[in-house]
Design a protein around this nucleic acid. Structure first.
Length: 221
DNA sequence: AACCAGGAGAGAG
DNA sequence: CTCTCTCATGGT
């Protein structure tokens, strides 16, 4: 049976360091977690470029910028009204409570998690992404690709977010950078076998992989 | 030209 | 608890 350790090793042999979540600042990561919800990264990049160009790629600026202006800047990321409102609320909440993310990383993890979970627009995956990619807490991000790949590779028959987190935690992989890359590699694998490439050739995890790892059940038949 | 992407929330049953 | 609907742009 495939272990998490083995999976990590095989994926690394194929994908190496994926440098998942490219960002120069912690603020940029948090902003990205909201913008990328159900949205392709290429569209998110355009919005981030607009924010950078406007000198507003920070939580402090987003908290104070005029809302119509914010909507315009992030329009390319879709759901722009909803995202503008949630970005503003989240940014203002963080700034008023912690001052900024650099202060936030020094707070107890439990307290930070509780605070973030209470924010509108911060669901399960966004919470994990902020904890790991923006704050460097050792949390493994479980998304749809991860759930699917874990259940298909037989590490877990009935994969849930909690069971996958547990499996990774008990594997001993704790370094935030290692956890970041494991998630990145899993998404790379997921993308390799998405709808456009239903067949998995040379799958690093499964010997006779005939269905790929598509998120679309129909292409799995 | 439908389909979907690095989701979350609100409502119904 | 599990569906289903909405939010919206841009690439294939």
């Amino acid at each position: 049976m495939l272990t998490v350790r083995e999976m990590d090793k095989r994926l690394y042999e194929r994908y190496g360091n994926t440098r998942w979540w490219p960002a120069e600042t912690r603020d940029e990561v948090v902003i990205g977690t909201i913008l990328t919800q159900n949205t392709s990264w290429s569209n998110v990049e355009k919005a981030i470029d607009q924010l950078r160009l406007a000198g507003c790629l920070s939580l402090k600026c987003i908290c104070t910028i005029e809302s119509g202006k914010l909507e315009t800047l992030i329009r390319s990321a879709g759901f722009f009204r909803q995202k503008a409102e949630r970005l503003r609320d989240l940014s203002c909440s963080i700034v008023s409570r912690y001052g900024g993310l650099e202060k936030m990383i020094t707070e107890p993890r439990e307290e930070v998690e509780k605070f973030l979970s209470a924010q509108k627009g911060v669901g399960r995956e966004t919470l994990d992404s902020i904890l790991l990619y923006a704050l460097d807490f050792p949390e493994f991000v479980v998304d749809k690709y991860t759930l699917r790949i874990f259940s298909r590779t037989g590490i877990e028959q009935e994969s849930t977010i909690e069971s996958v987190k547990e499996a990774v935690a008990s594997s001993g992989i704790r370094d935030p950078d290692a956890l970041k890359n494991l998630h990145g590699m899993i998404v790379y694998l997921g993308k390799d076998h998405c709808r456009t490439k239903p067949k998995c050739s040379g799958c690093p995890l499964l010997e006779n992989c005939q269905y790929g790892h598509s998120l679309n059940e129909r292409s799995a038949e």
